[in-house]
Design a protein around this nucleic acid. Structure first.
Ligand SMILES: [Mn+2]
Ligand SMILES: [Mn+2]
Ligand SMILES: [Zn+2]
Ligand SMILES: [Zn+2]
Lengths: 141, 141
DNA sequence: GATTAAAATTGGAATTGTTCTTGATAAAAT
DNA sequence: ATTTTATCAAGAACAATTCCAATTTTAATC
């Protein structure tokens, strides 16, 4: 057993993709990796404060931006609501269940390619796709 | 030839879907119907001012909200950028060409249904879909 | 290990798109 | 014509995010 003390643990390397993993960035990332609930910056802030009581909201924003910039987490927007963040790097979209508030990750069915489905302009090169669904889950049937 | 004087014209009824078509709402709608460029509220404001010099930005926002609420126009969001507005009521998504800034309407290929393509949770009832692409158009081939 | 340089963090102020509030206007109903 | 209701205008307020200057931390160099 090694010396430093943590709880459920989840090893985060000192550096990911050229981004130095500071204490604050590590804690922000941990929240997103542990909870797949797509929290807002402010929700991340509240959770990180439990471990780093002096952390500032500006730092949460800085960390989230750094993580997003380096492709370690993804930023998810629903309309004009506060941005949410997601550690699932697989290509996926989001379904917001209006009755529970839960946000579900949505994946393409196997073998589906965007260009098979959408009528894109000639020569269009897609850098980024965002698919956002709103609705509700009908428990019966 | 009828009495009231307008320029290129585009007849807008006194009421659409239960929404009273005031002068301001009509002008806002006209901009969106004439130009398919997905303008922001502020861009609509500048254009409407040419015809209604006393209109206020608050009124533009009020009108846009009323039109969106009544399903007459659609609100389109790219990340956290200012909302844009679209009079195309067909089911469609948006492709933002980063090199020109142009926003293209994107339609599904005929016969494609969302549930054929996405792996949705059991019992999911989709109220609304938003598809947003970013990229560029390669002019050669 | 001390010194210097670079990067990250903090707290608060500033920004920005949007919404709210309140009083004035205009339109509809009586 | 009077009353009621809806809309509009102007500016204040708001909330999420970004910016800024000062401090702290980390890394590099001596
Ligand atoms: Mn929370
Ligand atoms: Mn413009
Ligand atoms: Zn996700
Ligand atoms: Zn459109």
């Amino acid at each position: 057993m090694h010396s430093d003390t943590h709880h459920e643990s989840l090893k985060i390397p000192d550096e990911i993709r050229g981004l130095r993993m500071t204490r604050q960035r590590g804690e922000v990332y941990r929240i997103l990796a542990e909870e797949k609930t797509h929290p807002t910056a402010n929700e991340v802030f509240m959770r990180v404060k439990d471990r780093l009581p002096n952390v500032s909201l500006a730092t949460i924003y800085n960390c989230l931006e750094a993580l997003v910039q380096h492709g370690i987490v993804r930023q998810v927007n629903f309309d004009r609501e506060p941005s949410r963040f997601c550690s699932n790097l697989a290509d996926h979209g989001h379904f917001h269940d209006a009755s529970t508030g839960v946000i579900h990750d949505i994946h393409f069915k196997p073998g589906v390619r965007l260009s098979d489905v959408l009528d894109l302009p000639d020569g269009a090169l897609i850098d980024d796709v965002e698919i956002t669904l709103r609705g509700r889950i009908n428990s019966d049937s």
